[in-house]
Amino acid sequence: MRNLSAAQDGKTNAIIAHITIIGTIIAFVLNNSSKNEFTSFYLRQMVGLHLLSFINEWFIRGYVSGVVSWAITALLVAFWFVSLIGAINEEEKLVPFLGEQFQDWFKGIQ
């Protein structure tokens, strides 16, 4: 974790970011007024998970298989829990496998 104070200050917004896409949007708006690196970290993680979820629902379920889509959904829910627990514990916990890429791909979210 980079900054304990930032984690403490941004914890609430980081948790809000985990509450559906609406929560992510709310946390983004709240973070715009006073930038917090901890909240930004979790915003990038959640944007990545939301995008994977949309791809799963629109492409995998529609063109591949409902069973495969269900398995991916279960995996994404597990990733979401890992991220949420990290936010609650004030730790910058990367989503397994793709967390570092989310931080890189969405580095514009600050």
Rank of each mutant, 00 (worst) to 15 (best):
M1W: 06
M1Q: 12
L4F: 14
A7M: 04
A7S: 12
A7P: 01
Q8K: 14
D9H: 11
G10L: 10
K11Y: 13
K11L: 09
K11E: 14
N13Q: 12
N13T: 03
I15K: 01
I16E: 01
A17F: 10
H18C: 13
H18M: 08
T20Q: 01
T20G: 04
T20E: 01
I22N: 02
I22F: 09
G23D: 10
G23N: 01
G23S: 06
T24A: 09
T24I: 01
I25H: 01
I25V: 12
I26H: 00
I26F: 06
I26E: 08
A27S: 03
A27Q: 01
F28A: 13
F28W: 10
V29I: 15
L30G: 09
N31W: 03
S33M: 11
S33G: 12
S33N: 15
S33F: 14
S34K: 15
K35D: 12
K35Y: 09
E37Q: 07
F38A: 01
F38Y: 11
F38P: 02
F38K: 01
T39V: 07
S40M: 08
F41Q: 14
F41L: 12
Y42N: 06
Y42C: 07
Y42G: 05
L43V: 02
Q45L: 05
Q45I: 01
Q45K: 02
Q45W: 01
M46L: 08
M46A: 07
M46F: 08
M46P: 04
V47P: 13
V47L: 11
G48E: 10
G48I: 04
L49W: 05
L52V: 07
F54W: 12
I55D: 06
I55N: 04
N56H: 12
N56M: 02
N56A: 03
E57F: 12
W58E: 14
W58V: 15
W58C: 12
W58L: 14
W58M: 14
F59Y: 10
F59Q: 05
I60T: 06
R61A: 11
R61I: 05
R61F: 04
G62C: 05
Y63C: 13
G66H: 04
G66W: 00
V67E: 13
V67L: 06
V68C: 10
V68R: 08
S69A: 15
W70M: 10
I72E: 00
T73N: 02
T73W: 00
T73M: 01
L75G: 13
L76S: 02
L76C: 02
L76E: 01
L76M: 03
V77D: 05
V77L: 14
V77C: 09
F79C: 04
F79M: 09
F81S: 04
F81K: 06
V82F: 15
I85D: 11
I85V: 08
I85F: 10
G86V: 00
A87H: 00
A87Q: 00
A87C: 00
I88E: 08
I88A: 07
N89T: 13
N89Y: 09
E91I: 02
E92W: 07
L94G: 05
P96L: 03
L98N: 06
G99A: 05
G99Y: 07
G99V: 04
E100T: 15
Q101K: 15
Q101S: 14
F102Q: 06
W105I: 15
F106G: 11
K107C: 05
I109P: 02
I109G: 11
I109F: 12
Q110T: 14
Q110A: 15
Q110Y: 15
Q110N: 15
